[in-house]
Design a protein around this nucleic acid. Structure first.
Length: 282
DNA sequence: CTCCAGGTTCCGG
DNA sequence: CCGGAACATGGA
């Protein structure tokens, strides 16, 4: 495979960090890089310094990994405080990628109250069971199941994939899209608030998951998902020794304090907190 | 065994 | 608007 790899410039980018930061869940280590599907395309990609090598079309890969995002300009908008600075040092080169909307929405519906490792496991199970089989040389890969494919399964069948109570939500969402009740592409034209409200019409989608989808699939880089990790960071860092900080207050603070690239700041804080505080590092 | 994980929804103050 | 409880599953 290595003979046929195309090359593309990828300055200010850290592939491994980006793929392991909890925004996308199906890429697997392979040789010197990773294999995964970008939509229906089987992709191998590896990083050598400031360059990527891939079997796929360079522009296609560059778009997926958002290599056009002005990372240096984005960093300049980050607030200047110790916690944010540490996260930036730790996560430099992490990019918010452009995921297909349906795949991102469906994956985050299965993410509620689940560890990252388990979200990945569910993604692989669903792909293998209901997704299109793809081939990359000797490797077998699977696309995420289409809306139609999941819409015609059953709650029972999905529960067999360890979805638990999320099965009903995933199925209901697939059916709402399959019957035209909500059109994911129409959301692209909406402003952030309308888009968020539209996403919240799906069962199992509340503000947090809607914000993840806005950030990871609709390129709304201001969207600031607040999960338990981020909530801890906010409370401990910016509201230390304060009682009674409501969810509403946290939401308002994060929107104003982190600014126009709040979604980026959020992902850096999230990944840094998770990486440094799980292996007994505290 | 107990605790917790990239939450949402429903219900009673 | 706010706090609690129920909801499934598996890894630590």
């Amino acid at each position: 495979m290595s003979r046929a790899l195309a090359r593309l410039a990828a300055p200010e980018f850290n592939l491994a960090l980006t793929l392991n930061s909890g925004q996308v869940f199906h890429w697997l280590p392979h040789r010197n890089g990773f294999v995964g599907a970008i939509g229906d395309a089987p992709v191998y990609v590896e990083q050598r310094g400031d360059e990527l090598r891939t079997n796929a079309k360079p522009q296609f890969v560059a778009r997926y990994f958002a290599l056009d995002h002005p990372l240096m300009d984005i960093y300049r908008t980050f607030p200047n405080d110790p916690t944010m600075s540490e996260a930036l040092t730790f996560c430099r080169g992490l990019r918010i990628i452009r995921q297909p909307a349906w795949e991102c929405l469906a994956t985050f519906i299965t993410s509620s109250m689940k560890q990252v490792a388990h979200i990945a496991q569910i993604s692989h199970t669903l792909r293998r069971k209901f997704g299109k089989r793809l081939r990359l040389a000797e490797i077998e890969l699977f696309a995420y199941p289409t809306v139609a494919a999941l819409a015609k399964t059953s709650e029972l069948e999905l529960r067999k994939c360890a979805l638990g109570y999320r099965a009903k939500n995933l199925l209901g969402t697939a059916r709402m899209i399959a019957n035209g009740e909500v059109e994911l592409e129409k959301i692209r034209a909406m402003n952030d608030d309308d888009a968020r409200a539209e996403l919240c019409r799906f069962p199992g989608v509340g503000e947090k998951i809607a914000n993840c989808v806005l950030l990871f699939a609709y390129e709304r880089v201001r969207a600031f998902p607040i999960d338990i990790w981020i909530e801890r960071v906010l409370r401990e860092t910016y509201f230390a020794r304060k009682r009674k900080i409501t969810a509403k207050r946290l939401r308002e603070f994060s929107q104003s304090y982190f600014g126009e690239f709040g979604g980026y700041a959020q992902q850096y804080l999230f990944h840094h907190a998770r990486s440094t505080r799980k292996k007994g590092a505290r």
